[in-house]
Amino acid sequence: MARETLLIITLVELADNLVDDYDVIDVLTVLSDRCVETVDVDAAGVMLAWPGGELQYVASSSDSMRIIELFQIQVDEGPCVDCFNDGQPIVNHILNVDDGRWPRFTPRAIELGFTSVNCVPMRLRGRTIGALNFFSSHEGQLAVEDVAVARGFADVATIAILQHQSSLNANTLNEQLSNALNSRIIIEQAKGMVRQAADSDMDEAFARMRGHARNHNEGLTDVAIAIVTGTLDPGTLDVLKPKRA
């Protein structure tokens, strides 16, 4: 498929998502997946900052395990941390252990097969709220058009957080960010429950929860909340139990 066609389809899909009541984590996961398809990168992910500045991973492309691992190292140092702190993009940075930059992050990223990184800040009214990260495991640099598309995705990600339904009740950007970040933690807690109850790995557990949300036209976070509060059996997703007395 031509890149322009793919880009248009992706934008229409994201716009459709943002019109209805949507789940912010689900939309950001879709966005990360589409980044990989439309920008010349191998993995993508979104990090947001808690009010107070702590960065946390909120969504990543389907190659999630490796990316989450990288994000955990990033919480101490890395392109995303620098991009967030400076509010400036990092474009086509070639990973090299000898340059001394990010001594913990760089060797681990190279070990996982990545050769270069790009990072675009998510900005709103002069404040940086997070960053969109891109990891490449092949030679070659992002073209100017790729970087422009990446910036566009970062703006869509920002809008996804601001326009979210729960945000309508939120008084401040801080509350919107806090809700999105806490959603991610609830989803991780629910993933653990599904893994244990359904004997699946973490990626499968996440896929089951997303599948259940789709089938029942519910938000991913709502499904996660139902699991952790005991109203939805993690062992048999798609089977709803009566609320526990």
């Binding site: 955990q72 991780e188 807690q189 653990g192 893994r195 244990q196």
Partner: peptide, 17 residues
């Protein structure tokens, strides 16, 4: 380390079950 390490949350979900 990050106090927000996702493995701890995933593990809590498993232990809860």
């Amino acid at each position: 380390q990050s106090g927000l390490d996702f493995r701890v949350h995933q593990a809590a979900g498993m232990v809860a079950v």
